[in-house]
């Protein structure tokens, strides 16, 4: 089973809940919050490996290139411009490879364009792996890194995926790749608004899900609104002093995970 922890709004406790879920399940876990990965800080772990993540872009052989411009014509992102010179902006390249195919003179050869890296950790408590994606600062190709991580872990039968905040394209890609989603929210107007948006994405992705209302005792009124509005089972988690060490919180996460498996069955 592949399971995502998601939720829409940032700061509602997704990663804390993901850390509990990891410790309860002991599954390989992937931190897909590639611009601000931090699940490794929530779990006691040691880094074991690091690998670069690259796209394949073009490198030009100036002796063969006649500046015919075929590669620029097929370059959808505008990374390759050809006029008086052959010019690549590596930051705009999406690695589609069309330019390499289009060149009539074999003047282009594949080259690596780095967009980030993957750090692999071993979690001491569970012995399981944590993979953490890390996009290079300022790079705009977060979706490519998320996809790389999803492809890279495709063969694992049991996987826990911590998504970034929001309801954007990366979250959608993750939801399309999982069997079920644990949706974390809070009883606040902003969290409910983001939750609505996320649930629309979840419906498009057709993923079984349950909702965990974190810090439900913040507001009975807004907790009830969330419960009324979502059409799936919900769980209430209380505010606690030490969220990562709390047995009470862990028990709620366990119940929600059991409920999620029933929903997905």
């Amino acid at each position: 089973m592949r399971l995502a922890v998601t939720g829409g709004k940032g700061g509602v406790g997704k990663t804390t809940i993901a850390a509990h879920a990891h410790r309860l399940l002991g599954w390989t876990t992937v931190d897909l919050d590639v611009t601000t990965p931090n699940l490794h800080l929530y779990l006691d772990c040691e880094e074991e490996a690091r690998s670069r993540v690259c796209l394949i872009g073009p490198e030009v052989d100036p002796d063969r290139c006649t500046l015919c411009g075929e590669c620029a014509r097929v370059c959808h992102s505008g990374a390759v411009i050809v006029g008086r010179s052959w010019d690549l902006d590596p930051g705009l390249c999406h690695g589609c490879g069309l330019c390499l195919d289009a060149c009539p003179r074999d003047a282009l050869t594949p080259r690596e364009i780095e967009i980030g890296e993957v750090r692999e950790y071993r979690v001491r408590e569970t012995g399981a792996r944590l993979l953490s994606g890390r996009l290079n600062v300022g790079d705009r190709r977060s979706r490519h890194l998320v996809r790389h991580l999803l492809d890279h872990t495709e063969d694992r039968p049991r996987l826990l995926l911590d998504t970034p905040a929001g309801a954007g394209k990366e979250v959608y890609d993750v939801l399309r790749a999982v069997d079920a989603a644990l949706v974390v929210t809070q009883p606040t107007p902003a969290a409910l608004r983001d939750l609505r948006r996320l649930l629309r994405v979840i419906r498009v992705a057709r993923v079984p899900h349950v909702v965990l209302i974190n810090q439900a005792d913040l507001s009975e009124r807004w907790t009830r609104r969330v419960e009324r509005e979502v059409e799936v089972p919900t769980w209430r988690a209380p505010r606690v002093d030490d969220p990562l060490g709390s047995d009470e919180l862990r028990d709620v996460v366990r119940e929600a995970l059991d409920g999620l498996r029933e929903e997905a069955a």
């Binding site: 411009g69 620029a72 992102s77 505008g78 990374a79 411009i81 006029g83 008086r84 705009l92």
Partner: peptide
């Protein structure tokens, strides 16, 4: 990506 594409257009216009 207009900023890149227009450069290609101007390059073609020589």
């Amino acid at each position: 990506g207009a900023g890149r594409q227009i450069v290609g257009v101007l390059a073609q216009l020589d």
